[in-house]
Computed example of a mutant assay.
Amino acid sequence: MKKLSIIIPIYNEEATIHLILDKIKNVSLPNNIEKEIIIIDDCSTDNSKTKIEVYIESNTELDIKFYQHNKNKGKGAAIHTGISKATGDFTIIQDADLEYNPEEYSILLQPVLDGFADVVYGSRFMGGNAHRVLFFWHTIGNRFLTFLSNMFSNLNLTDMETCYKLFNTKILQSLNLNERRFGFEPEVTIKVSRIKKIRMYEVGISYYGRTYEEGKKINWKDGVHAIYCIIKYGLFRL
């Protein structure tokens, strides 16, 4: 039986963590693929830990693994912990903020199950699915970062910064990843692009973005660091 490892890095997501877990719980995957849920709490200061523990106790039928950092290390570091714990055939990253819809896991899995892909990115900028209309400059920034990343990786992605990245787990675990914060996205993209005969696909997904008032965390400083990471990993094999 094939298994999908779902890595959920969280930091102060007490308001939505149980909601995203409910969505994952109710998702049916193709080919009877099993779900392994890996939650990494990056030293939250709210009630996230208690919410997760109560949820696990109430849903013992789910395969949920819960890990905590003893200090705040960053989203990338939380993902690294999740990658090291993954035992599934495939791995996907899932934010806890409800911006991405777990019902679309099947869309990302299909190219892999059909034997065409090793890595599949879910693009917010292609396809006919729903997209919340939000920030103009965020969109420009995302497109610029994707363009810059494509220059160094020789890919033609439309959305390098997407959260929804699905990998063959063995390939993902073979990468030497260093970025502890939001630099994970360009680093993993550039490094996976260098693997010989790697088969990367992109599919359209929906996007239900949050405003800063609703809890969005990424800002312009993260964009500047992403540029640095693209140049750093694009020029040097670190």
Rank of each mutant, 00 (worst) to 15 (best):
L155P: 00
Y121S: 01
K196Y: 06
T139R: 14
K217E: 14
L108H: 02
L235Q: 05
D159G: 04
V203R: 15
F236M: 08
G115I: 04
G204A: 10
T87V: 06
I38N: 03
A226K: 11
N31E: 13
D22K: 14
Y228S: 13
A77R: 05
Y105E: 10
K49A: 08
S58W: 00
K85T: 04
D114A: 11
W137L: 14
K85N: 08
N142E: 11
C163T: 12
R132F: 09
N26V: 04
D89G: 12
I92A: 02
Y11D: 08
L4N: 00
I20L: 03
G223Q: 14
I8V: 13
K73A: 12
M200A: 09
H18N: 15
Y207I: 03
S58I: 00
F90T: 07
G128R: 14
F66G: 06
A78V: 06
L145P: 10
E61A: 12
F66A: 08
I40T: 05
T45L: 08
Y11M: 09
E36S: 02
H80Y: 07
K216V: 00
C229Y: 03
N168G: 00
G209W: 06
S123E: 01
V119Y: 01
T50W: 07
N70A: 12
D46N: 05
E34T: 05
N72W: 02
R132G: 09
S174C: 04
L109I: 09
V27G: 07
N142I: 02
Y201A: 13
L113Y: 05
Y100N: 15
F144S: 12
N154E: 15
I190V: 14
R199S: 12
V203E: 14
D46P: 03
K191A: 11
E99F: 03
Y11A: 06
K2P: 13
I40K: 00
I39F: 01
M200R: 10
F66C: 08
K221P: 02
V112R: 09
K3W: 00
K197I: 00
E13Q: 03
D42I: 01
S106M: 11
L109S: 06
G127H: 06
E14Y: 12
L62P: 05
G215F: 01
Y55E: 01
I190Q: 09
K71D: 12
K35P: 05
I24E: 06
L62R: 01
Y55K: 02
I64K: 09
P111H: 10
I93W: 01
L98N: 05
G128V: 09
I56S: 04
K2Q: 11
L19R: 15
I33L: 02
L29A: 07
E57T: 14
T81G: 00
S193M: 08
K75T: 06
K217S: 15
Y208A: 13
I40Y: 01
T45Q: 03
E13K: 03
I20T: 07
F116H: 15
G122L: 05
V203F: 02
L157N: 11
G88F: 04
S28G: 08
L108Q: 00
L175M: 12
I10Q: 03
I198E: 05
L4Y: 01
P102D: 08
C43S: 07
T16A: 10
E103P: 01
A226Y: 01
I52T: 01
R132E: 12
R199L: 12
K25L: 03
